[in-house]
Simulated scan of single mutants.
Amino acid sequence: MEPLTEHRLVSGPVVYGFLRLVRVSDARREALVASLADYSRGHELTLSGIFAERIAGAGPGSAPFTGLLDALALPDVYGVLAPALSHLGPRAMAAERGRRIEAVGSRLLLVRRSRPTCPSATSITVAHCHSPEAVRLLETES
């Protein structure tokens, strides 16, 4: 007799993380990576890697964000996972980047939703993340 589906290892939809790590300590970076990993595990998503932006003045087309868009073009990629909308940059840049993510057919998932004044925040799931898990942090030159 075959085991039930719940007893088989199956991989969920593929997502990539995006973090804005300008002047962030190693402990904070590790906590952010752990929050993405925990959210992915809790929502049965496969976190394939995390793109990190480390330069404050990086524009909307920075190397890490361009790398993220390239990864989103791969087959069977579901979307982007970020701790909060602020990880996409300042408000105007975050809005532009959100549009670019949606334009390639991907979803933007936030671990923690923004203030209720943000119109898109009402459809985003909130999660509390605490346990660490090893995930590749995809470093690119900005």
Rank of each mutant, 00 (worst) to 15 (best):
R97F: 03
A92R: 10
T122G: 05
L109M: 13
L68N: 12
S120M: 07
I50M: 04
C129M: 11
L110V: 03
L72C: 09
S35V: 08
G49V: 03
L85A: 14
F18L: 12
G17H: 07
R41I: 11
H7I: 11
L4T: 13
E6D: 13
L108V: 04
S142N: 12
G89V: 14
S48R: 13
A56G: 00
Y16N: 09
A82G: 06
E2F: 13
R29C: 07
T46M: 08
C118Y: 09
G17L: 04
V135M: 02
L85T: 07
A134C: 03
S11H: 15
P64K: 10
A73L: 15
S120H: 05
R107M: 07
T140A: 14
E2I: 14
G61C: 05
A84M: 11
A127I: 03
G67D: 03
T117S: 09
R54Q: 10
V126R: 07
T117G: 02
E133S: 15
E96N: 04
P132I: 13
G61E: 10
A121D: 00
L19Y: 05
C129Q: 12
L108W: 03
S131H: 08
L137C: 13
L72K: 12
A56F: 08
E141F: 10
L137N: 11
T46D: 04
E53R: 00
R112N: 06
E53A: 01
